[in-house]
Design a protein around this nucleic acid. Structure first.
Length: 216
DNA sequence: GGGCCGATCAAG
DNA sequence: TTGATCGGCCCA
């Protein structure tokens, strides 16, 4: 039988994603993500709640062209570009219009290791190939072209499948999200305890601007 | 139209 | 600890 989330037995991944985003994030641990000839088992995810509810969410200030897919139905890919060079992948959750999503932060490669290595020749340790949200998309060859595609119905370049074996609660930890400023203390990051592919936690720290004077 | 900042990564 | 590097968003 499927594992229980929030007291209800899950019958499908689609049902999981259609529900509240925090249990959805928890339930995505252990699921399989396939793209570009590489499959990872998700080991670390973060929940971002709906428009106006979560200051850390890209949908917080309402709908824009970039985040438009977040306002649609669950199960679709929200891909964004950051720091001038990295792509990150989310799956939209919750009811249409709510704009919550789960960020895929890390995974362990279960298929296509050589393909992933070819994409990231400078990464030596296998456990680092998809350790971090931008490394994960790089290993799977995911970029803007996956934006708005379904992760569930087999029509898109990225496919999400249920966990072959559910991750038990005693193997799951949660804590604050990485690099988040607003609502920084919500424990909405979930990861598999002891897994070497989980990215190192770094709380947001403000950068000094170039011409800052030292305080008196 | 201009300026600032970021759900990051990897080298030093 | 810091530079790279540029799209999105806000404000004027």
């Amino acid at each position: 039988m499927g594992e229980r989330i929030g007291g209800a037995a899950l019958t499908s991944l689609g049902e999981l994603l259609a529900g509240p985003v925090v249990p959805a994030a928890r339930g995505l641990l252990g699921c399989l993500l396939t793209a570009g000839g590489v499959t990872v088992r998700l080991t670390e995810v973060e929940a971002y709640s709906g428009s106006g509810q979560d200051a850390a969410s890209h949908a917080y200030r309402g709908r824009t062209e970039r985040n438009a897919v977040m306002f649609g139905p669950p199960g679709y890919a929200y891909v964004y570009f950051t720091y001038g060079m990295h792509w990150c992948l989310n799956v939209v959750c919750g009811p249409p219009g709510f704009a919550s999503a789960v960020l895929f932060r890390a995974g362990s490669i279960v298929e296509g290791v050589e393909t992933a290595r070819a994409r990231r020749p400078r990464i030596r340790q296998e456990r680092d190939l998809a350790r971090g949200p931008a490394r994960l998309t790089a290993a799977l060859g995911i970029d803007r072209s996956a934006y708005g595609t379904s992760l569930l119905d087999g029509t898109g370049p990225v496919q999400l499948r249920p966990a072959p074996s559910p991750v038990p609660d005693e193997m799951v930890a949660c804590g604050p999200r990485v690099g988040v400023v607003g609502d920084a203390d919500r424990p909405w990051r979930f990861w598999i305890l002891g897994d070497p592919t989980v990215s190192a936690y770094r709380r947001h720290s403000p950068r000094r601007r170039r011409n800052d004077q030292a305080p008196e």
